[in-house]
Simulated assay, not measured.
Amino acid sequence: MDTIYFDLDGTLTDPKPGITRSIQYALQKLDHPTIPTEDELTWCIGPPLRSSFVKMLGDRDADRAVALYRERFSDIGLYENRVYDGIGDVLTTLRASGHRLFVATSKAHVFADRIIDHFGLRQHFERVFGAELDGTRADKSHLLEHALKEVSVDPAKTLMIGDRSHDMVGAKNNGMKGIGVLYGYGSRNELIEAGAQHVCATPGAILDCIS
């Protein structure tokens, strides 16, 4: 593969505390009768945020919930995060081998850019692609379509690496190959059923799947 797109949450970094606590904050502000635990909210890591709130609250309150989530996430939550062990070495090796690397995340790019900079990952990536704050391109298929056009690369020579079904479906819908990672928040069955051609248990295993 010449060009590789990496998901952010659950693939490059573990964002669980920041995301789940910010969801809890939003639900508390909305006086939701039950506040799920952090572990009970891990299913929200990966999919577009608004769609997760729709499942919990219905369409009417979803936009308000997103705004409340961002109140906490923009100042606190995005730093409650850590880079997975071994990711830096993987990115360094891939760049040294001549691959072009990009980030493609359903997270708003204004937050994704801050996370990439905060954790010292900017050197590895040519560009970070993410959603707009209004939800435009939060869908992974739309995001990858945009990212491929912006970089002007052949999808058949391009790879998407991510931890959730949305990453694999987005890749398949754009003629890309997909590699799923199991150290994030998706299961082996979820990834394979969504079209992953390989699944990797550790960051280091990604290198074995890339020619």
Rank of each mutant, 00 (worst) to 15 (best):
L144S: 12
E71S: 02
G86N: 08
A171S: 12
A147V: 01
S152G: 04
D89P: 03
N173F: 01
A67P: 13
K177I: 06
S211P: 08
L27E: 07
L41N: 12
Y5V: 13
F6Y: 07
I19V: 10
S106A: 04
V151S: 03
G77H: 12
V54N: 15
H32D: 05
E145K: 14
G175Y: 13
A138R: 08
F129Y: 14
I45A: 14
D7K: 07
V128Q: 15
R64A: 09
H32A: 13
Y25I: 04
F129L: 07
Q123E: 12
T3W: 10
L148T: 07
S187G: 02
D2I: 03
G58Q: 12
G58V: 15
D113L: 06
G58D: 13
H109M: 08
Y79A: 05
D75N: 09
H109S: 05
T34D: 13
I192S: 00
I23W: 13
R122T: 12
L68S: 04
F53N: 07
K172D: 15
G180V: 04
R72A: 10
Y79K: 03
L27W: 05
A138P: 00
T158D: 15
S165D: 10
I116W: 08
A196T: 10
I210E: 03
R164E: 09
L68K: 00
G10S: 05
D9A: 08
L41H: 15
N173D: 13
D63Y: 11
E71W: 05
L78P: 07
T105Q: 11
I23A: 01
S211N: 12
Y5M: 09
S152A: 12
I115Q: 00
D39E: 15
L143I: 01
G86R: 08
K177N: 00
G10K: 07
M160T: 12
T42S: 15
G180Q: 04
S165T: 10
K29M: 07
G162N: 07
S187M: 06
A67M: 10
P48W: 09
L94R: 13
Y5I: 10
E80T: 03
I76G: 03
D208K: 11
D75I: 05
L144T: 12
K16N: 02
T20F: 10
C209P: 01
D85G: 09
K157A: 14
I115A: 03
A196M: 02
T3G: 03
T158I: 11
G195E: 08
S165Q: 13
V181Y: 06
V153A: 11
D61W: 00
D134N: 14
Q197C: 00
G46H: 14
G195A: 10
D167T: 02
V83S: 01
R82P: 00
A194R: 02
P155C: 11
I161Y: 09
R122E: 04
T158P: 09
F102R: 11
A171N: 10
M1W: 01
R127G: 04
L121N: 11
G175F: 09
R122D: 09
I76P: 08
T202M: 05
G195K: 03
G46W: 15
V54R: 14
M56A: 11
I192W: 00
I192P: 02
D63R: 04
C200R: 03
A67F: 04
H166Q: 10
A131H: 05
P36G: 07
R70H: 03
F73V: 00
V169C: 06
I35S: 04
V54S: 14
L68V: 03
D85R: 15
I115G: 00
A112Y: 04
H166L: 12
H99W: 09
E150I: 02
